[in-house]
Design a protein around this nucleic acid. Structure first.
Lengths: 188, 188, 188, 188
DNA sequence: GATGAATGAGCCTTCATTCAT
DNA sequence: AATGAATGAAGGCTCATTCAT
């Protein structure tokens, strides 16, 4: 049964989410995953490889979560859905799952190789931008800049929620989302 | 002479900036700081306390950098100055100083205690927001939301620059800054 | 079919010859022998037993090699043939077979039990000595002493060749062999 | 006090002599040497470096023992003294010291670098050979061949004594030594 | 105050062996 | 008989911390 690999990855994610990467020891991981220490090495070459895999795995989960239903409805609907998915991702601060910020701290997240993987995984987002620009609904800027204006506020609010444990009111969030949408729209 | 404490903190910052937190060993720190390993323990209770102090120390430096001249000129000038200070901070990738992102990775940065310190350190920013709201130049929203809209795009772009190593053109950044400023301005 | 036992022994010999005893892991052995790890334990009680068997097995091969044709021709011919077989054994540094020196390093080679086996295996040598002594062609000394005088130089030269990788000229070897033969001959 | 380094080397030698190299664990070594595991690493970079040093250290001891008084008296006296020093070295099978055979099994003993060190350490032997050849007391052969004829029998007898635990009678050894000396002397 | 040698718990990893299939 | 996934003890090594000097 290959769910042992899955058990290990989930236990690793859990430990990092709760105690931080520096508390991820192979001994503890084995115990939490319910396997023997040696077993981990049947599935992952070494600790680095395990983290590599976890990084990709988590990114995929995050992307799936954020981009869910990102292709249905009007462009504005799709934008808002993504925006709130980011918020929801931040709100879902179960201690069992790595959040986006923790993910970016994983070693290797900045490697050229991984950034390529990230680009591919978030391809739908770039399609959305392209479509919107083509229809004159978004400013014709570099995607990086658009993302910063449109979604970084949401990412930042997530971080804030995570750090303080406090949530915002839905109406407040709606207003911010609205302002983000306006910010990247061509001025009438 | 208390500059030994300073030597130690600077050496620690330097090591983390260059090699990462996980390469900060007390022996290497002692060597780089030019003191004996035991000496560190005369100034800091233990490694955690050292990092606690470094975290506050670095935050203060960062705040000083970002809020430099934040009280001169028109409100828009002050806003723009802060916004570009954030960008400059991201661009200034000296190997000698911790950058903002590295700072946020330091363990304990999310503790209630440290967040309180952070709030105090960035008090001038809240004063700016208060002043601007009073003059009707900014939307009357929670400071957290305002910050997200106004500055998170800059923070995000810094992160992007660090990760990819690429810089943006000044004109592009000006445009984004401008859009941030508009985003939080009341729609006349 | 019992050739699985043989496969395992050959694979073990091969690994030790190429990579050294300390690289003989049961997993690698299983892989190289083309069997499952557990299967080895159907043929050998444990790793020690496997090495025990390999030791005997290799000794037998070595003895066969050295004593080949050791019963044909004049006593001097037989002596010389053995002497040069020892040299040839040292020169034959195939990577597939353990050489004599590697053999002597196998744990347990000095056990009383194994030495008895060694004595039996080299019985023909003792017969040769007995015959030669009876004919007055060799000094009437303890076989151990005779062996030391007659063959240890050859063994030593092999070791030297293995260590340095250099070979000696045939004429030089002939001279040494000749001097060995003289050394154990009664002084006219 | 730098005798900790010495303690560690002696404990290592002791363990290898008694239990074999594969039983030399850093844990056991630390315990036997009366230091903490980490302390070993203050004196030796790692296990390999420790063994490297031990190899040189033991070779030096062996050479000192064998070459003791090797420059006094007639050439034959010197020859016999060395020959019997080799025997004595083998007889001195205290379990506390590595013998020559064990020494040659230490990893790295065959490296070019170490062989060079060996050559230097045994330089007096080569001087002896040179002197004897110049005086016409020894055959004009390669030193390697001379050594094989003259001393390998002694080395072999040592090995034998070590393996069987039995000693030879002094008169027997005298005879063998004598035959070795004759073997390398020019046939009048 | 300052030193740095010494400590030993804890880390990552390997591998002989077992056992359910 | 054969498999190979799983085990977990043990190995080499690091490093935060202490303490005699």
């Amino acid at each position: 049964m290959d769910n042992k690999r899955e058990q290990i990855l989930r236990a690793a994610e859990n430990i990092i989410a709760n105690d931080g990467l520096h508390n991820l020891s192979m001994q503890k991981l084995a115990k939490d995953a319910g396997v023997a220490a040696g077993t981990i090495y049947r599935y992952f070459a070494d600790k680095d490889a395990l983290i590599d895999e976890l990084r990709r795995d988590v990114l995929t989960q995050i992307a799936n979560f954020i981009l869910e239903d990102a292709s249905k409805g009007s462009l504005e609907d799709r934008f808002r859905r993504i925006w709130f998915n980011i918020i929801r991702l931040g709100e879902t601060c179960t201690l069992e799952r790595l959040n986006f910020e923790q993910y970016t701290h994983l070693p290797g997240a900045n490697s050229e190789e991984h950034r390529k993987f990230e680009r591919e995984t978030f391809a739908p987002l770039h399609l959305l931008f392209a479509e919107a620009k083509a229809q004159g609904l978004m400013l014709d800027m570099d995607d990086e800049l658009l993302f910063a204006l449109a979604f970084e506020p949401a990412v930042g609010l997530c971080r804030r929620m995570r750090r303080t444990g406090l949530n915002f009111q839905q109406s407040e969030l709606e207003q911010v989302c609205d302002l983000c949408w306006r910010a990247i729209k061509p001025h009438q």
